[in-house]
């Protein structure tokens, strides 16, 4: 519940402040957001599986964001930034889908 409140709070603050993304962050933010979403869905699934741990959530959230940003950074340096970004998005998308499928099975038995 508390994290959900936090999410809503963040969205409201974002709408109010209308932040501009700093230039150095612009290539990484989209990927970081996707990675964080993956962590969030993973956490919900873990709750339903009964194996949720706050610590694991925090660590997986941060590591997901950092690793995703790092992969994109590395890709940019290697000259394959666009392709690697696409790859990361695909992988994270697949993970999000499988997590959502698991959540759905838990909650609706379907």
């Amino acid at each position: 519940m508390i994290p959900a409140v936090g999410l809503a709070l963040g969205i409201i603050v974002g709408l109010l402040l209308q932040p501009a993304v700093p230039v150095w962050l612009q290539p990484y933010l989209p990927i970081a957001v996707i990675a964080a979403l993956d962590a969030v869905f993973g956490a919900v699934r873990a709750i339903l599986d009964g194996i949720f741990s706050d610590k694991v959530f925090v660590v997986s959230f941060l590591s997901n964001v950092v690793v995703a940003a790092f992969i994109v950074f590395l890709g940019d340096k290697l000259g394959v930034g666009t392709q690697l970004s696409t790859g990361v998005v695909v992988v994270l998308g697949v993970r999000i889908f499988s997590n959502v499928a698991s959540i759905r099975r838990h909650l609706f038995d379907a």
Binding site: G6, G10, A36, D54, V58
Partner: peptide, 19 residues
């Protein structure tokens, strides 16, 4: 850790809106 999770979630929401 719950507060930390809330902070992370808040930053996620903020980041989504920013993006």
């Amino acid at each position: 850790s719950n507060l930390l999770a809330m902070l992370l979630a808040a930053s996620l929401g903020f980041a989504i809106i920013a993006q």
